[in-house]
Design a protein around this nucleic acid. Structure first.
Lengths: 130, 130
DNA sequence: GTGAGTCGCTTGCAAAATGCAAGTGACTTC
DNA sequence: GAAGTCACTTGCATTTTGCAAGCGACTCAC
């Protein structure tokens, strides 16, 4: 996330938002229904707390997620995909398909995940935490 | 490219290969017919020489590109997409589509680019430099 | 009602990646 | 033979990442 707007190229510009090691794995978690801080920490990739916090705030800045206070006292927030964030689903599905073909030892996700539409993902993301 | 294989998740694993700011822009250039070192340096994003060199060798390690000596004395190499690399085309197209919808000031690529297939890309990548 | 535990972060610091500029070797061209 | 070009490499400053510990605001057990 260093130098911004190197060019008007959609690939270079898009990578400024999703071109790092963590953003899309958090997005994956949201696509599969996770919404709270502890949920994201639980994932097998073991993201550290500082990176998670900084990625979540960047994602919010970039309009991919919205934060909702789901309890006061103490204040707790849950994170949900915006339509802009949910629209990254096809990208995530492309990456998944590529990895499943070309990288050994990657697990294939459930069919519902590969067949989901961004609309469905946005609706799931808009739901209050279970 | 720090810690490898955080999990068997296809998304996390795929990001270890393409989850950085430069790999996909070099790939984009190859998809549009570039193959030589100087060609890549020419792109509007102005990648620096050290990063380009390190990305190209990583991409070779990861099997996305192959290097071909196109002249001896002095030895010069051109870089070409392998089928594995060309198969990233749908991912690049997804990212392009997303950026065009959600990021202002991104230019839309020519139609042929969005309609290309990985097979066509691999053939173009396999061609000797023009 | 106090001491341990949980949750969602923040802080400090070391290690790695990135960016910039300059340099280098093997030529080609004037 | 001096000046360029091409494909890198090297050195060093800056930025990002990763790890571990800390911290405030609670809840819950006893």
């Amino acid at each position: 996330m260093t130098k911004k707007n190197r060019s008007g190229c959609p690939i270079a510009s898009g990578l400024e938002i999703v071109g790092d090691r963590w953003t899309l794995v958090i997005l994956r978690d949201m696509l599969t229904g996770k919404s709270k801080y502890a949920d994201f920490l639980d994932s097998p990739e073991k993201i550290t707390t500082n990176i998670l916090a900084s990625r979540l705030s960047q994602m919010e800045e970039n309009g991919l997620v919205s934060r909702r206070e789901y309890q006061t006292n103490p204040k707790r927030y849950s994170y949900h995909l915006t339509p802009k964030g949910a629209d990254l689903l096809p990208l995530v599905q492309s990456l998944t398909r590529w990895s499943n073909v070309h990288l050994s030892h990657t697990w294939t996700p459930p069919a519902y995940f590969m067949e989901m539409t961004p609309q469905q993902a946005a609706e799931a993301g808009a739901k209050p935490p279970a």
